[in-house]
Design a protein around this nucleic acid. Structure first.
Lengths: 119, 119
DNA sequence: CGCTTAAATAACTACTTGGCTAAATACAAC
DNA sequence: GTTGTATTTAGCCAAGTAGTTATTTAAGCG
């Protein structure tokens, strides 16, 4: 990747459904490359490349057990992402507040209509 | 982008420091393209491309006022990202717990050493 | 040793990205 | 209409990505 700052590398690694699915699988526990590859219609080298991206991004670590290289989730970088995004929480909560307001407004109008039916 | 699912598009858009900085600027309020471009050592068409990426990702919306096209932060997609990442919170909190444990352990050992100094 | 399995690497292709310059568009004001 | 300002589009290029097949490394087992 051109942008080598850690956050950019992490976001880029997450911008792929296969890689996110791999992380999802690793959330259930360590797994070998074969096990990770099974659900996907992709060759093993393809998966291997994705794992390399995830490893470079610091999202997984890899051990060594005989001829297996078990992969493990490493959530540090996810925490960084979470902290970055928290700065923006007020914006989506603000929109939800506006939605709440709108819904309350609608409900008030309906209640009003029920209580004072037009002749 | 090859991966056109919304989450992938959002992550890809966030995987660039210039684009994240633009979002950071927009957190302070709407801004024109010129205003957004000012802090960066980049041509205007370059910024325009970044804005297009952010717009396609649903992270910003653009209005129209005379010859200006004011940009505005739209946090819906950031909420989606936040919700995706929340599923992993327990992993980084678990690591922090292990760090806490380790630090407590270290401190206990030091306390022990202070109280029972070797002769 | 030779054989099998697990995984990584090399080499290739098609496509995307991020930047540029130059040209085009949109609108306002004169 | 012409000029000026804001912004986008077009066309180019270097670099990166995601996938493939074929080859290679690593380890365990007979």
């Amino acid at each position: 990747m051109l942008n080598s700052d850690p956050l950019s590398v992490t976001f880029a690694a997450l911008a792929d459904p296969t890689r996110r699915a791999i992380l999802g699988r690793l959330a259930h526990g360590e797994a070998t490359v074969m096990e990770l590859a099974k659900p996907f219609d992709m060759t093993l080298p393809g998966i291997s490349k994705h794992l390399k991206v995830l490893e470079r991004a610091g999202l997984i670590t890899r051990g060594r057990e005989a001829q297996w290289r078990p992969c493990k989730l490493d959530a540090k970088r996810l925490k960084d992402v979470s902290e970055w995004i928290e700065e923006y929480r007020r914006f989506w909560e603000a929109s939800l507040d506006r939605l709440d307001e709108y819904l309350r407004d609608i409900q008030a109008k309906e209640k009003d209509a029920r209580e004072k039916p037009r002749p």
